[in-house]
C-alpha cells in the first residue's frame, strides 16, 4: 500500500441527548492511502456522514484521533474539500464566480486559467456566465465538483454527491468522476448507500453497520476501470456487500 494519507484511530462519537446518550460511532479504525478512492457504504443513520464530517474537520470526535499527512485534523482546510449532497453551490454567483471561490488569493492570470481549466474539465464550457438556477441538477453538481477541484485539494470528501440526481445522470457523473480522479490523482472519500455505486467507483468499500456505527468490513474491489458491475465476476462481491448490509440478495 502507498503511504497513508488519512489515519483514523479508535474514533468514538457520542451525542448527548436529554436523558441518554446516542453512540454514533464506535471504535472506528481506518487508514486511507494517498490517491485512493474509498467509499463509505451503509444504511442511513449508520454514522458514515458523521465519520466523514469528523475527518473533514467539520465535527469533533468524542475520543480517538484523526490525522492527515501525520498532522491531527483541527478544522476545515481548503486542501481538503467537501462536496455536499445539496451541492452548496452559491445561487447568487455565476458558474465562473462559484469556481473562483477558493482561488481568491491567486494572481489574475493564474486564477483565470485555473477556473477555465476546471470548468472545461467538468464539461461546462460555454456556461461560465450562467447562474445555477438555470442549470440542471447534474450540471449544478458539476459546478460543485469543479469548485472543489479548482483548489487542487489532496482530499475530496463527497457526501452522497450524486444522491439527488436521476439515475441516468448519476451513471454519467460516476464515469466523469472516475475520469477526473484518474487525471488528478487526489484521494477521495465518498459516502453512499448505493452498493453498485460503491462497486463502480471504489478501490475499497468500507461497509458500516448502524447503531452504534462501526466498520463491519472493508471490501477491496480489485478491478480496472471501467467496470461492468453486472458481469458474473462481480456477483459474489455484490452479494457479499448486500449481505453485510443485512439484505439477502435474491433478485
Amino acid at each position: 500500500m502507498a503511504e497513508p494519507k488519512i489515519v483514523v484511530r479508535g474514533l468514538n462519537k457520542v451525542f448527548q441527548r436529554k436523558n441518554d446518550e446516542l453512540v454514533v460511532l464506535q471504535d472506528v479504525d481506518l487508514t486511507v492511502a494517498a490517491g485512493e478512492f474509498v467509499c463509505l457504504l451503509g444504511p442511513s443513520g449508520c454514522g458514515k456522514s458523521t465519520l466523514m464530517n469528523i475527518i473533514g474537520g467539520f465535527e469533533t470526535a468524542t475520543s480517538g484521533t484523526v490525522t492527515i499527512d501525520g498532522a491531527p485534523v483541527e478544522g476545515p482546510d481548503s486542501r481538503r474539500v467537501f462536496v455536499f449532497q445539496e451541492y452548496g453551490v452559491f445561487p447568487w454567483a455565476s458558474v465562473w464566480d462559484n469556481v473562483a471561490l477558493g482561488l481568491r488569493k491567486l494572481g489574475r492570470d493564474e486564477q483565470h486559467d485555473r477556473i477555465q481549466h476546471y470548468i472545461d474539465l467538468v464539461g461546462l464550457k460555454g456556461f461560465e456566465k450562467t447562474y445555477p438556477s438555470e442549470l440542471s441538477g447534474g450540471m449544478r453538481q458539476r459546478v460543485a465538483v469543479a469548485r472543489a477541484l479548482a483548489v487542487k485539494p489532496d482530499v475530496v470528501f463527497m457526501d452522497e454527491p450524486l444522491g439527488a440526481l436521476d439515475s441516468l445522470t448519476r451513471l454519467k457523473m460516476r464515469a466523469e468522476l472516475l475520469r477526473i480522479w484518474q487525471e488528478e490523482g487526489m484521494t477521495i472519500l465518498f459516502v453512499t448507500h448505493d452498493v453498485e455505486e460503491s462497486m463502480q467507483l471504489a478501490d475499497r468499500v468500507v461497509v458500516m453497520s448502524p447503531r452504534p456505527g462501526r466498520i463491519a468490513e472493508i471490501v477491496p474491489i480489485v478491478a480496472p476501470h471501467p467496470r461492468e458491475i453486472d458481469a458474473p465476476e462481480y456477483a459474489e462481491t455484490k452479494a457479499r456487500l448486500y449481505r453485510l448490509l443485512g439484505v439477502t440478495h435474491s433478485f
Partner: peptide, 26 residues
C-alpha cells in the same frame, strides 16, 4: 442554509470575506 456557510469556511473564507461572498449575497 448552513451548507453555504460550511462550503465557504471549507474554502478558507472567514469574517469579512465570508460576509462579502456569502452572508450578504445570501
Amino acid at each position: 442554509p448552513s451548507v453555504y456557510v460550511r462550503s465557504a469556511r471549507n474554502f478558507g473564507l472567514e469574517r469579512t470575506e465570508l460576509f462579502r461572498y456569502v452572508v450578504f449575497p445570501a
